[in-house]
Design a protein around this nucleic acid. Structure first.
Lengths: 340, 340
DNA sequence: TTTGATTGCTCAATCGTTTGATCAGAGTAG
DNA sequence: CTACTCTGATCAAACGATTGAGCAATCAAA
């Protein structure tokens, strides 16, 4: 690989001249002719700055860490896409670290921040994140932006308008004529879970409908947990005619369990889920969902962290555009007369 | 962050002594007492080597690049898990780069290799990888291991025993009594696609069954393409009673299309797919699949590239253990008398 | 013509590690 | 007592880029 001094030699100038021209430093006083020769030489040698040298000198790696619970998730995939695109657009790369299901004793997080590998971290806290890792991250002298969660002692987050998304889902069911509506939520300690449940309650209240406490579950966002919630709700004396599921992954589990129990969807039970993913379209019946601006969330998270790194500015921001969108597929319908 | 010289100062020794002790260089002649003081000081300061400085000096980043078509894919997720775990076990980190669906004009690949960000690259070639990116990768003076594909002018790959996997799937259908079996394959130019189709033909031949050419499609691994293949096969005069789908993602599309067409699975049509993923268990009916050792593939790919980096050794290797495993769910059954 | 400012560069230190070369002192052999 | 050989360290030069300081030449103003 060509170095700065190779380019300098070829252009017949000093290394510093080359450095200044190629990174067009404002303090560069270089004639147009020299400038041209430098650019030519760099192009001919296909010069690319060695990132280790640059990082060492400037203590900027142009890498941002994306710490997520689980890469498998179709939802994170969309988020990652936004993060990656925006990062790239600003000349940054993304180093992904997973927090769940890691072998015992691994130390990715400490290494990520301790060895100076990243300029900042985008953190999506999952249900099973180790408290120790979170502590280390918060204690680190490194910019951190929380994605879709807020932390009591930490300013700097980008979140979705979860309440609005769930409200749209709930209003869809209400509009179809459902009155006994259940809620399959995230874990109670989950920040987004609380916001989603609040959205559900608000929508119900606005429609003058009562929320039967037995119809609200808080088991988690995973398919298995969605299935467990479904089993719970179906076993009730007064089971719901429709459910709002706070996460599309849980909705898949719920759907599977409903089928196991012989419940026809949407005939016996309507299901609407938050977040859209390709799996929703391929489910049977295809799931009605509310699409949230996940890619935009990722993009704005990157903007937030870069701003933080460059100017020190810090803020909590809610992503409202593009607005949540109801994708009506085949898992929701009017309640049957018998069950209304 | 503490540096080597901070540690040296605290231990009352020179920087080089610290460096040698902490990276326990064989050439280090240091007394046990000094050694102890150095270790203590390092621990007290929570010293971690600055990775930029280390990379600059040793031209080793301990980062390996994982270049995949698409992170969304549940199949890659499993692969990534294996890659990540094995890399971590050897003190390496993983930088993920996506090749499909990237904005025009991005230059991730050239930057990845040109700026010295990675010690080597694990490359999963997808259907839509840009020829230019592939050319750059092959031309780069950087170790590259192909994952589940082989390249004519390149030694250094780790592949699955695709033929064996498809054979197991096919034999399952034959065992159930199916004789008119279709194949939903990958694109003809795809390396793995060819191996899978060959496995299918071999299994059929061994059972003395003929492969009707109209029953073999080669549209691709994506859900949409699986759906298109399904439409094609269902429209045939002599449609199959069962199909082997070369990829579970395509199987989801096929399943959806079958339902659209009013085909009952498995009553009218059995479906078995290669690769297992959580989506398969959550489909309706849950898909019968052949689980391939994807995580192991990832692990061995890492081993291969580290070996390549350290010793220069290069080889093409097929991952046969753990052996492909048939996961019988509910999408396969004996053919109905009427359609046998 | 001297002074001062401006232009167009180059010099050299520095970031934190690694590593070959060097060196003082102790021990051993002759 | 001299000549070696170890032992246990230190010195100093890289790696490649950035950046403040310096310097020679040119030009305008006094």
């Amino acid at each position: 690989m060509a170095t700065l001094s190779d380019v300098a030699a070829r252009a017949g100038v000093s290394v510093s001249a080359v450095s200044r021209v190629l990174s067009d430093a404002p303090s560069a006083r270089v004639s147009a002719a020299t400038r041209q020769r430098i650019h030519d030489a760099a192009r001919e040698l296909d010069y690319r700055p060695n990132f280790a040298a640059r990082a060492l000198k400037s203590s900027r790696t142009n890498v941002i860490g994306l710490v997520v619970p689980d890469v498998t998730n179709a939802i994170f995939a969309e988020l990652m896409r936004g993060v990656e695109e925006e990062a790239l657009a600003h000349g940054n790369m993304v180093l992904i670290a997973r927090t769940e299901g890691m072998p015992e004793g691994e130390d990715t997080i400490p290494r990520l921040i301790g060895e100076g590998r990243v300029d900042g971290v985008l953190l999506q806290v999952g249900d099973a994140m180790r408290a120790e890792d979170l502590r280390i991250l918060l204690a680190a002298p490194l910019p951190i932006i929380f994605i879709n969660s807020v932390h009591p002692d930490h300013v700097g987050s980008v979140t979705l308008d979860d309440g609005r998304g769930i409200r749209i889902a709930t209003e869809h069911l209400i509009g179809l004529g459902h009155r006994r509506i259940g809620f399959v939520g995230g874990l109670p300690r989950s920040d987004s879970g609380q916001r989603r449940e609040a959205g559900f309650r608000a929508a119900m209240a606005d429609a003058g409908l009562e929320v039967a406490e037995g119809l609200v579950t808080r088991l988690g966002y995973e398919p298995k947990q969605g299935g467990a919630a479904m089993a719970l709700l179906a076993g009730l004396d007064e089971s719901p005619t429709a459910i709002v599921v706070a996460n599309v992954n849980a909705a898949h589990g719920a759907l599977l369990e409903a089928r196991r129990l012989g419940l026809g969807v949407p005939h016996d039970l309507s299901i609407v889920a938050m977040h859209d993913a390709w799996t929703a379209a391929n489910a049977w019946p295809p799931l009605t969902t509310v699409r949230m601006p996940l890619a935009e969330l990722g993009r704005q998270a990157v903007q937030a962290i870069l701003k933080r790194i460059e100017t020190g500015d810090l803020a909590d921001h809610v992503v409202r555009e593009p607005a949540p969108e109801l994708i009506v597929r085949e898992s929701t319908a009017e309640p049957t007369a018998a069950r209304r």
